[in-house]
Amino acid sequence: MSLARAESRRLFKRRFTKLLMVGVLLILAAVAAGTYLSNQKVSAGQIAEAKAEANRDYQAGLVSAEQEKQKCLAAEGTPEIQNWGGSCENIYTPSPEDYDYVWYMPASFELRQEFPDMISVFAVVLAAAAFLIGASFVGSEWNSGGMMNLLLWRPQRLRVLGTKMAVFLGWLTGVSLLLAAVWTGVFQLIAQFRGTTDRMTSGVWQSFGLMGLRGLALIVVAGALGFAMASLGRHTGMALGALIGIGAVQIGVYVMAQLAGAKYPDVFLAPLWLFAWLYKEFVVEDYTSCDYSSTGGCELDQFTMTWQVAGTGTAVLVVLVVGAAMWTMRSRDIT
């Protein structure tokens, strides 16, 4: 318990932790402020005006299509008919759905529609900070000799590293939950004052909750990976270097997979795993599976990466990296 208390104090006494926390708060505040300023509450008058404007444009579209059709009919039997693809039947006649009045309204924040993206932003920003704080928390201890000092006091290597990691991840979870609650409250207020909270059913809130939990898992995983990588290399730079290395390798693998004619090379890109995890699935398509044209269209072969697949893959990675960090802590000499 005393070790856990000491590690908690150490975590929050570190300047790097404080700086990154301030940075995270500033980024989140900027996102919230930007959303607030770029949206506005729409009045009934504005809706009516938008509907009228949409209708005007629709009518203008109909007139324009009719004029085009007349020109086309006049050109029948002449080479100019090729300007319309050889037939006047191809001329598109607009429908009212093509002129959705929503597009004519000023931007307005709809909580139901847009909050999932805000959960993603929150999770990604905190995950990046968690990775850096985790790496620095243990990396600088190794680098400065603080870890050796600590082991002279508590010569229980696995307990020391395990406690350090548990304390960090525990605080990370606590702070993330607290910030997530504030984040949700802030966006609900933004929706009330600069948009709408319509159509918010309990099912929608449940969906937000589950996405938030997946976001929390992402944050914790990023923290654990940063911590474990820095501990493996006994230096903060090791985690950062490994991250850059993994980025370079996955791009290399993606290019190689493309060259080798792999059906879905996109699955080698980590950001897509991240997307699948947060948004429950990510669909990749094989654009060579048919002669696709925008007018003719065809069904492309698809592969759906689900959050379960992305989660299992990431869990395996975390177990391997954290396991390796613990194993080296137990077996390697400290010189």
Binding site: L3, A6, R9, K13, L150, W153, R154
Partner: peptide
């Protein structure tokens, strides 16, 4: 860390 913090953290840990 200051000397005081360094030692107080060690004291807590031990």
């Amino acid at each position: 860390f200051t000397a005081e913090t360094t030692l107080s953290l060690l004291a807590d840990a031990g």
